[in-house]
Structure formats: C-alpha cells, structure tokens
C-alpha cells in the first residue's frame, strides 16, 4: 500500500459517502444517473468475486464489502424507495448503458492477463468501470446545472482513479515486474473521460457559481 493508493481509496470512499449522504438525508437523487449506478454495481460484483476465494488484507476485504454494499443500496434506493425514486430524472437518464456491457465483455474475452473465469470477469469490470460514468456525464449535460453534492460526487469519483494512476507509476518504479497494461490503459481512459467535467468543475471554483 502506498500513499497514492490510500488517497485513491479514500477519495473513492468519500464519493460513495457523499452520494449516500445526499440520497439518505435529503431523500433526493436529482441529477444522479441510475444507469451509472447500475453499471457500478455490476463493476463491483464482477471485480470482487475473489472476496470469497482470496484474502489480501482486512482493509481490502472491508473496503470491498463497503463498495459492494453501497453500490447496491444506492441502486435499491433509486429504484424502490418512494421518496427517492420520485426525484429520479427518468426522462433525461436515457443513455443505453446495456450497450456498454456487451462490448466490454467481448473485449475482456479477447484481451486479458489470464483466461480464467475470475480473471476475465475481473478484466470485464475494469473495462466497464472505464465507461460506467458515461450515462452520468450525458445526464449532466442535459440537466442545466447540478447541486454541489452531485458535483462533488462526480469530482471525487473521477479523482480516485487519477490517484490510482499515480499509485501505478509509484509501484512500477518500486516493484519489479509490476506491469499491468490493461489496468493502466483502462484507468487512463476512465480518467480522461472526466477531463471535460474537471475543466468546468474548476471553472466553478474560480467563478464561485454552480456547475453549468
């Protein structure tokens, strides 16, 4: 574990907590894409299958349970909780996210580190996570401007993988044989997809107004 990866995990945890805070306390999911949340639930379900077979550390297992639990409960809240579901913007959240799942699965079957069931699903989760934010970014452009909590959620979610990139650079230089091109490229694509959002998000800080 290094400071970049710890910062990345904490940023990711913060993004999940901000979203849970918004949904649980003010019972609103306005501006949040259910489709992105569904994709993230699939990402964690396929990435953490090894939670039963391999033990890395208490921290690792605990965080996996947190991310699994939070992603599924956010989907549950947005789908089935009356008050929250009422604030869900169904008409605007129309990105065909299931069209993202199949290509990622095919790509994982073609490009992976090892052709085993767990490894292919793990690789699939990497590819899917790289594009999982697309429905949310599309929804963002359709809804005029968003509240601060949603903006902070997206900012933290985009930032965590950026910190992971620093972690991979650090591990590449400090650990022999630490080379994972698939993870690195997927992580880079994922972070670059936020570039446009980061630009407007920082403008907001400079301008001191809501995210347009």
């Amino acid at each position: 574990m290094n400071i970049f990866r710890l910062a990345g995990d904490m940023t990711h945890l913060a993004s999940v907590l901000v979203l849970l805070l918004k949904i649980h306390t003010i019972k609103s999911c306005a501006g949040v894409s259910l489709r992105t949340q569904e994709l993230y639930a699939i990402v964690f379900a396929t990435r953490y299958l090894d939670i039963f077979t391999s033990f890395v550390s208490v921290y690792n297992t605990f965080m996996k349970l947190v991310f699994l639990g939070s992603s599924f409960s956010i989907v549950w809240y947005m789908r089935y909780h009356k008050a929250v579901h009422r604030t869900y913007d169904r008409e605007q959240d129309t990105f065909r996210h299931w069209f993202l799942v199949l290509p990622c699965l095919v790509l994982a079957l073609l490009i992976h580190e090892k052709f085993t069931f767990l490894e292919v699903l793990w690789t699939f989760s990497l590819y899917l996570e790289a594009v999982a934010i697309l429905p949310q970014l599309v929804l963002l452009q359709r809804t005029r401007n968003i509240d601060n909590l949603t903006g902070q959620y997206i900012f933290l979610l985009g930032g965590y993988r950026g910190l992971y990139i620093l972690n991979w650079i650090y591990r590449y230089f400090t650990e022999p044989h630490f080379v994972h091109w698939i993870t690195w490229i997927a992580g880079l694509v994922q972070t670059l997809l936020y570039a446009d959002f980061f630009y407007y998000y920082f403008l907001r800080f400079i301008g001191g107004r809501g995210v347009e």
């Binding site: 550390s57 690792n60 490894e119 972690n167 650990e175």
Partner: peptide, 10 residues
Amino acid sequence: DTPKDFHDEL
C-alpha cells in the same frame, strides 16, 4: 508480497 495472480488493489 501477494502472488502475481492476486489482485491486491480495489
């Protein structure tokens, strides 16, 4: 450290 096929990252 954990064997190669382990994924020790989240």
